[in-house]
């Protein structure tokens, strides 16, 4: 009785948000994604005729194939560097007994408190031809003319790593902080050096954090639009920009929708792999 009442109450609570999601998220996105199977039409945006040509074009047309490959490459590199830079940071933050620990934690979150555009313009100021980096290098006599930093893949990866760092660091911190400190002590009394303790105990036990952080950073960087647009420009085309272009400028909705479907599929498969491997750890 009470359980049935609770159930009804729960359903009642979920109804408004459920309807909102259905009508303003699931239906429009479903409609947009299904458009990928329609034929492109110059005048009517699309013709209601089923076809696979949009998806075929993504994998056959080298222009689009390059965009997909570049997206995977830059998202992969961003994930790798976030992990390499974020792990020592997370490790330090969980181990330090410094009174500054709270302040340092705040610094990790701080980037999230400013908008992505502001931070991206910050990078432009630094990396532009007239930017601080080039000016400093020229003043130091290391280079004669400004280096091309903006509009390179490196610049995009640097900016993505910077902006997505908190998404890597926080899962790592939570998995490192959750470890029983006695495990490392046990390993050391059993004869393990500090390095072995880390490799045998700390690192494998932080696997859930590594996976979680990597999945977040990978999916967020693969889907990013603003950073590749502002820092990469025309020279570094990623899927997000390309969808934006196709939908708003080229007005080829079916192809844009196919590209968007592919992006969502990529992200979902990464998340799927994450849940699979996490389950294996817990058994």
């Amino acid at each position: 009785m009470a359980a049935a009442a609770d159930r009804r109450f729960g359903i009642g609570l979920l109804t408004p948000i459920g309807l909102l999601y259905l009508f303003f998220l699931i239906l429009p996105i479903g409609f947009f994604l299904s458009m990928g199977f329609f034929k492109y039409d110059v005048f009517g945006l699309y013709k209601p005729e089923l076809t696979g040509e949009n998806f075929a074009r993504l994998v056959v047309d080298p222009y689009y194939l390059d965009i997909v490959a570049l997206t995977l490459k830059l998202a992969g590199l961003t994930t790798l560097f976030s992990l390499l830079l974020g792990y020592p940071l997370a490790f330090f933050l969980t181990r330090t007994r410094s009174a500054w620990r709270g302040a340092l934690m705040f610094l990790v979150v701080a980037p999230l408190t400013t908008g992505v555009i502001v931070r991206t313009y910050g990078w432009i100021v630094l990396m532009g031809a007239e930017g601080i980096v080039n000016k400093t290098l020229i003043a130091a006599g290391l280079i004669a003319r400004p280096l091309q930093i903006l509009h390179t893949e490196t610049a995009v990866v640097i900016a993505l790593v910077h902006i997505l760092m908190p998404y890597m660091v926080f899962p790592l911190i939570s998995s490192l902080a959750g470890q029983d400190p006695n495990l490392e002590r046990a390993a050391s009394t059993l004869g393990a050096s500090r390095a072995r303790c880390f490799l045998e105990v700390t690192l494998p036990l932080s696997r859930p954090g590594i996976l979680m952080g990597s999945v977040l950073v990978f999916t967020l960087s693969a889907g990013s639009v603003v950073i590749p647009q502002l820092i990469g420009g025309k020279d570094v085309q990623m899927m997000g920009q390309s969808i934006y272009e196709l939908v708003l400028h080229t007005l080829n909705w079916p192809l844009g929708s196919a590209m968007a479907s592919l992006l969502v599929l990529l992200q979902f498969s990464i998340i799927f792999v994450y849940f699979r491997s996490n389950r294996r750890v817990r058994r």
Partner: peptide
Amino acid sequence: PPQRDMGLVFQNYALF
């Protein structure tokens, strides 16, 4: 600790 050759059993066992 690694140079002491002592076996320690913890209250919570601390199994890996």
